[in-house]
Amino acid sequence: MAPRRPDYTFTHEHLLGIEGLHPLDIAHILDLADSYAEKTRGGIRPDPVLTGKTVVNLFFENSTRTMSSFEIAARRLGADVVSMPVANSSVKKGETLIDTAMTLNAMKPDALVVRHSASGGAKLLSRKVDCAVINAGDGTHEHPTQALLDLLTIRRVKGRIEGLKVVICGDIAHSRVARSTTMALHLMGARVHLCGPRTLIPPGTDTWGAESAGTDFDAVLKGADVVMMLRLQLERMNGSFLPSRREYFRYFGLTAERLALAKPNATVMHPGPMNRGVEIESKIADGPSSVITQQVEMGVAVREAVLHLLAGGKS
């Protein structure tokens, strides 16, 4: 996979977040991921660039989807994969993140894919190990591979990212997806608008690159090319952040009527898993505008690209 600019090389040791990446890095990852997506669609087995490499999935939070996606990506490239859902192992018995990391590090893996409930968890790990660390979600901080797969999906559907109006709606405050995806879209020239209940909009979203952060979903939908709905955690709906599920759906749920306010060919996305009837109507989630299953497909392609670049596949 030749880079777009001959003088460009991917130099990162880890993928801890979108923050710190250059637009050229993102374009390079997306191009490589795109080629993997095409191979998979064409039934072509990719080159086993990670043969002899060991990838460890270290998930301190349960996430079957993301862990499987990384596992499939690594196996497709020929790596040996060990998946450790540590949520129910020795870590619960008082072993710290660092102790676990040191133990695994001694086994000389080539890449550690880590998900942790604490913001900065992946960063902390990366200071203590010798191999590449890929952040698969740290607390409410970042989830870079999700952002990259969102961008790849958008690029394939829309043919470009630059200049698009993207609306991200939901629990912005607690969403690592919102942070990473907003930053990545902004870096690639999209105009990002955030929307959600006032209690779930954090300060300083302009520093992520968002053009606005408001509470009027209908107004911001006007002219939107892409509408991305975020999952609303059930514990936020019990009256502490917003009154009720039905009130949330009334103002922030994506319905057919509401989607009609966006551009006619607007694309609907969701990082999953969805709460049907809370943030999105089933008719929309399963309808022609939705690219939600494509996002999952692109997830594997993006993770193939990231593992390829970081786990030692230097082609």
């Binding site: 913001s119 900065g120 740290d138 607390g139 409410t140 901080h141 970042e142 405050a173 690592r176 942070r179 954090p202 300060p203 300083g204 979203t205 520093t207 992520w208």
Partner: peptide, 10 residues
């Protein structure tokens, strides 16, 4: 509390 904390996810 503020923009810096929000960005760091803290």
């Amino acid at each position: 509390a503020g923009a810096f904390a929000a960005r760091a996810g803290l």
